[in-house]
């Protein structure tokens, strides 16, 4: 059975709104645009570095809409004291990247 994406659709809509507010170029947000948003969470930089590694699935230095949603999901988990995993759980890989 298709593994449901861990990001709920209502959360995805919220993350998409943030994504669009950061004026993506060709549907991508570069690291310098995403960095202030994630730093806003007041999480330690090494945590954010790991969040980035896990969400920048194609390691192109930019996040697309789905990768951005993964990053936001991981940040919210970390804010609720959920440790950021060392590798991306399969349920968190966006269906578009499987």
């Amino acid at each position: 059975a298709e593994l449901a994406w861990a990001v709920k659709s209502e959360d995805k809509a919220k993350y998409d709104a943030i994504f669009d507010s950061l004026s993506p170029v060709d549907g991508f947000l570069s690291g310098d645009k995403v960095k202030p948003v994630l730093l806003n969470s007041k999480l330690p930089v090494e945590i954010l570095g790991r969040v980035w590694e896990l969400s920048d699935i194609d390691h192109d230095g930019k996040l697309d809409r789905d990768e951005f949603a993964v990053a936001m999901f991981l940040v919210y988990c970390a804010l609720e004291k959920e440790p950021v995993p060392m590798s991306l759980p399969p349920a968190l890989v966006p269906p578009s990247k499987r």
Binding site: G31, D32, G49, R50, W52, D56, D60, G61
Partner: peptide, 13 residues
């Protein structure tokens, strides 16, 4: 082993 992110693509490293 977690891949230590390459600073070239990671704005936090």
């Amino acid at each position: 082993q977690f891949p230590t992110g390459s600073s070239s693509t990671n704005p936090f490293l």
